[in-house]
Amino acid sequence: MKSGQSVGFLQRKGVLGFLFTVPADAILLLLLAYPFVLGIWLSFTNTIIGRTGSFVGLENYIDLFHSDVFWLTAFNTVVYTVGAVFFKLILGLGLAILLNRDFKGKGLMRAIVLLPWIVPTALSTIAFWWIFDSNFSCISWLFMKLGIMHAPINFLGSTVNARISVIIVNIWRGIPFFTIGLLAGLQTINHTLYEAADIDGATPWIKFKSITLPLLMPLLSVITTFSIIWTFADFQLIWIMTRGGPDNATHIFGTFSFQRAIAGGHLGEGAAISAFIFPVLFICVLITSKYLKREN
């Protein structure tokens, strides 16, 4: 009798389904929601590593608003994200269109394009750290050997050059994500559309503007949103190449937060810095999902 009741309870609408999702929910709560809530809580405290903090309200946030380094970091983060994502999008799209054509060795080329994405970032960044070394750069060496220059390029030693250098590395690393994602999208476009356009005498640009781009748009917006999220919250690339220097010119939220919270021990303030990442990314996701709904 009892066992029959249990079976009946389990068969009620939603109960069994809920039970099946419990393990996944538990993992999400434990590994995603808990650290997130803890981070937000820490940002309202004056916690220092090894010591219990107390609630300080918005003090950490107010302090950050009065900090020059914080505003410089915010500026750097925006420049880094906008610069890198823009070029990743343009170059990734261009490469995807090229790789969508039929040519000999297409498979090999597609595999090669994926390489920057496959290589661990820490490893490839170390290579770029050397390539952009202010004194030992192979680029500088080549130019000097060719007699084009007489002194090495100060890649990471000047504030502007350092920003450009880290953006270039990020672009190099991120292009495959755009390329492969958009290539998959290009392959779903019906070829008859292009044939019809050819019959109407459409130029390649018109075909791209009127067929390719509109049909790629939903995928493009999702890929771009993901890229913005990853670029905005980047850490390892900057940390390996510059540690946020020179003169804080390449600090972004992730590195500045780590420096303040872990290296400096001020967990509360570090959490407040990283909390600034959240609203920006939330807005990005919101805009994209609204756009996708409209498209649907």
């Binding site: 070394d133 202010s134 004194n135 002194a151 090495p152 100060n154 890649f155 990471l156 030693g157 000047s158 350092a162 510059t242 540690r243 220097g245 020179p246 003169d247």
Partner: peptide, 12 residues
Amino acid sequence: MIPGVASWLDPH
């Protein structure tokens, strides 16, 4: 100083 010291980390 040699140009580039502003980018120097510990091994440089």
